[in-house]
Amino acid sequence: MNNFIFQNATKVYFGKGCVKEYLTCLTNDAKTILLAYGGGSIKKNGVYDEITGILKEAGKTIVEFPGIMSNPTYAKVQEGAKLARENNADMILAVGGGSAMDCCKAVSLAARYNGDIWDDFWARPGVIDFEPLPLGVVVTVAGTGSECNGGAVITNEEKKVKTGRDYPALNPRFALMDPTYTFSVPMRQMISGSFDILSHIMETYFSEPNEDNVSDDIMEALMKSVIRNLRVAIKNPEDYTARSNLMWDATMAENRIIKMGKKCDFECHNMEHQLGAYTNCNHGCGLAVLHPVYYRHIYKEGLPKFVRFAENVWGIARDGKTDEELALAGIEALAAFIKEIRLPITLKELGADKAQLKEIADSCGISQGSYKPMTHEEILAIFQECYE
């Protein structure tokens, strides 16, 4: 394995009833809490009442920061930072999925920084040499794994750029993860979020080294877990075992463990982020459209790993197939799974404008970890193949 340094500062409280059991003691040092959430689904499913009830009983002042969108914008980050400063918030509590968590990581930084965090921390890597506003999270959607890292993907609408950075200083102090909180997530959101989990794992798996390593072995088990448990959850959305497994799959995919010793690719994420910046499309849906086509472009350069993917994840027997035939069979199994779970398979379905594809392609970042280094011309070719 390649050399690495591992760190993860987030303390996880996992399981049914964990919010009731632990939230009060985890907020002991805070008097004023910025309560952040999305479009209001937590008010329909009872999560909002449970959390606010616990905080009020503990004597906390609650400042609400609602309306975080699925692709959080820099303007929304600035709005949250202003609220936190004006109300002297001691802590942020983000309740929701990756969007709420990502937005609040950026808010925790902006609330204690006098400059422009986009220019200084997102447009280019920065150095956090001060203490961000403490952040805790309550996870209600399994997908991004944002609960156990310092990563935050933010869209600058003015510049039409969607980008992510991962700063260990922005790791949440704690993550409360009750799988029952995910039961009420709409089916489409549950499926697209689960594909995002699978994508995170694949983006790390399909990268060097190819030699035997612990990370690849873990990832094969995780990919099989996502596929198996998503099928169960589609049939029965309140299957606790399936939903708890998907929730922990999401965390394991992005808590940095599987990335140890790996170069990582994330070119598909680079491409999808820019599609999202232009179309505001669902992240998991965009990834589902891109992955099979992207892999058909790079499988020859990463042939041994694509053979492993076919055999160890999809259980495809060699039966006289060449390595190339076996690799392609694994990619086709992925494409068939995407159709099975009824995610989109074309950019046209996502609302992309064909006339804008070159502009979007030219704006995409180029991954240094891809088996086959991309050019903007090849990214455009991939977009065109994905269009319809």
Rank of each mutant, 00 (worst) to 15 (best):
N2T: 15
N2L: 15
V12H: 15
F14Y: 08
G15V: 15
G17T: 07
K20T: 13
Y22C: 09
I33P: 08
A36S: 14
Y37S: 12
I42R: 07
V47E: 01
D49V: 14
I54Y: 08
A58G: 05
V63S: 04
F65G: 13
F65W: 09
I68F: 03
N71C: 15
K76F: 07
E79S: 03
R85I: 15
N87F: 11
A94L: 02
A94G: 05
G98L: 11
S99A: 00
C103I: 15
S108R: 06
L109W: 04
A110S: 10
A111K: 06
A111F: 09
N114I: 10
W118Q: 02
W118E: 02
D119H: 07
F121E: 00
F121S: 00
P125H: 01
P125W: 00
V127W: 06
D129T: 12
L133W: 07
G136A: 09
V137H: 07
T140I: 11
T140D: 11
S146D: 01
C148H: 02
N149T: 15
A152S: 12
I154A: 09
T155M: 12
T155H: 12
N156L: 05
E157Y: 01
A169E: 07
N171P: 03
P172D: 00
M177W: 13
Y181L: 12
F183G: 09
P186T: 08
M187A: 01
M190F: 14
I191N: 03
F195N: 03
D196S: 07
V214G: 10
M219L: 09
A221H: 11
A221P: 10
A221D: 12
A221S: 11
L222R: 11
L222W: 15
S225R: 15
I227V: 08
R228F: 03
R231D: 02
K235F: 05
E238C: 05
E238I: 13
M252S: 14
A253W: 07
G261C: 15
K263C: 11
C268H: 03
C268G: 06
C268E: 02
C268D: 02
C268F: 02
E272N: 10
N282K: 06
G284T: 12
G286N: 07
G286Q: 11
L287P: 08
A288S: 03
A288F: 04
H291A: 01
H297M: 10
I298L: 04
Y299I: 13
E301F: 10
P304Q: 00
R308I: 11
A317F: 11
R318V: 04
D323N: 08
L326A: 05
A336Q: 14
A336E: 12
F337T: 08
I338N: 04
K339P: 15
E340D: 09
I341T: 09
I341F: 08
I345Y: 04
L357N: 06
E359Y: 01
S363M: 10
S363E: 10
G365I: 14
I366M: 09
Q368E: 08
S370K: 03
A381D: 10
C386T: 07
